[in-house]
Design a protein around this nucleic acid. Structure first.
Lengths: 201, 201, 201, 201
DNA sequence: TATGAATGAGGGTTCATTCAT
DNA sequence: TATGAATGAACCCTCATTCAT
């Protein structure tokens, strides 16, 4: 039996949605518990039926966001060997997600410092596992000679920063669709690592 | 006769330094006026001799940071026509600055939303003027055929996001020096826009 | 089911009572939010369940006080034509109220300048409506010749000032009761406007 | 050698003037030391060359105001016996002063509660001496039968309240001059105490 | 489930005052 | 005489959180 509060949507979901939106636009510290309550159509006391703490709510959002991204990436890469294809897939997945959920992603990217040390360890752990997929693809490509760069570590960072940027400016209603955007970024990524361009469709 | 408070440094400077550091690491909303005071070796009341308001302090930091970057860029580009050289110079300047003052830059990049509408207008105005230098260089290069990309607007954003990222992870004491870093980014930037690689030294 | 806090009285009422007492004796600006809290047996944070703002609390007190006085006056005068009787009734009502609630009245009389422009407009509006009842009675009496004075406007002010004064010195426990006081003031008022003395009882 | 600060007027006087104006319009507690400084064209630190304390400044203003009123009243009444004439003179003096210096008078009337107990004793002492002149005149008149009232104490209060009111609404530029006003109040006062009207001029 | 009431701690800011210059 | 710098205490108000109902 689904329990839906006065907003028509299950309350827990409403709280998370509201939190994502507010944390993304005003920052964790800039968002008050009352803002959250109002946005979720709940009293601030009721909020605590759906979250243990404001900080834990943030941690949950970040953790689930990153975990889902990691899971998707693992599924995407499953069985693939070719570094170029792995890079392509990682970029397309990453950019697609960032374009589909820019708010959620902005929270993940900007609010790590607001976490408790314990939560922070968890979150950074997942993030590291995710970024290792990128490092591995890059390293393999460099070893096989299909990628070229004089500074692999720095190049990897540049590549990720470039892809992360999407969440900061992409607006879903714009002229450029998510898929076209992702394709374009795959092209850019190949350029960055010195891989041959993707064949035209 | 320089007036220096209990910290050995002129107080106004100490306040600004402390603010940059704290705003960068804990965020504007995460930084209390008492944190600021302690970091500047001042009472919280004394803080108000050196700033009208916490928000105006932030605005001043962002404004002066951006203005100085814009001024330096204008000086750097003065008299230059070649789009490739202009891009090189912009990237080197940008990355050097971001690596020299990562804190200050992080504040500029992350705390725009904490500004008053009025301050925000000012700050965004300067930032737009600065980014126009990049757009112009890119457009000129595309027109002359020395750059190639199917989506100029998106490519410009990707390029800037990549360069901005430096401020988020660069630590001055690391193995890679500021100048080498900047050179490497100039290489990456050329790749991104499809320009010929820079000749080896 | 009445909800009563640690003071035995409904909290909202306790807050208003305390505010009236403190604003009357120490002035609005001389009363701190902590004074108010202590007097209402509440923490200063809890205060804000019962008032939006210290200033709005003041405005509410003044508004309701004046409105209730105006309503009572309108009821009192309903159907009356004779200016002398109207003046008698106004004086008796006014003085009785001022003697019954000298604190509340002192706030109304002394703290208008502490109001926000918006609140001030409201409050002064009600006060003007109330004073118009006095003006009308005076004017009617002058027109009919039952009152005589060379300077009606000034006389009206003198009359009101005289009656307002009660709130500043009347203490409920004194030898003179509220009703006797009011009767005496009705006599004085008649003298002031040159009306015949009231018949002895 | 007169010492005049940057305002062209002796500084001490400027401070007092400013204090009178501000205390009258915003109240003692509503007036900050910085308001005072700005109004006196001085820094807030410099203020303390001309006053020991904000409270003592208030006390000085009130004391000198009342003392000067008392002195003038004593001079005015010197050698007079007739209660009616004494009352006339007191009213005219009182009203004239209140109309000439409404600000100063408002401070005296409204800010007694802001005084230190010690200052308060001083001030109230002078005020009591002054009011005794009124009581004496009234009592003498009642004894001699030229005044009639059933409640002398209350009537005296009503009389004083009426006269004090002038300071609250009189504005020097109005249609009614100070002297005419004072004459009118003398008429009203006679009415109040049941004395025969003053002969027409 | 849902919320009004309640609060200690802290938010940013201003207070009246002192003091070295 | 005049003032910038400095501050502890207090300003009004909001914070995240708890709890009885």
């Amino acid at each position: 039996m689904a329990v839906t509060g006065p907003g028509g949507t299950p309350a827990r979901e409403r709280v998370h949605r509201a939190a994502v939106r507010l944390f993304a636009t005003k920052g964790f510290h800039g968002t008050g518990i009352r803002d959250l309550a109002k946005a979720a159509n709940l009293s601030s006391a009721s909020l605590y039926h759906y979250m243990p703490t404001k900080e834990r709510l943030l941690a949950d959002i970040m953790r689930s966001s990153l975990q889902s991204l990691l899971d998707a990436a693992l599924a995407e890469l499953d069985g693939l060997d070719d570094p170029v294809e792995r890079l392509d897939r990682l970029v397309v997945l990453h950019v697609t997600r960032h374009a589909r959920e820019p708010m959620r992603t902005r929270v993940v990217d900007n609010e790590v410092d607001a976490l408790t040390p314990a939560s922070r360890r968890d979150v950074v752990g997942i993030r590291d596992a995710y970024e290792k997929l990128w490092s591995d693809a890059l390293d393999d490509g460099l070893r096989s000679g299909v990628f070229t760069t004089t500074r692999p570590a720095t190049t990897r960072l540049a590549l990720l920063d470039m892809c992360n940027g999407v969440a900061r400016w992409f607006s879903p209603g714009g002229e450029l669709g998510r898929n076209d955007l992702a394709e374009h970024y795959a092209d850019l990524a190949r350029r960055l690592v010195g891989a041959p361009p993707r064949p035209p469709r």
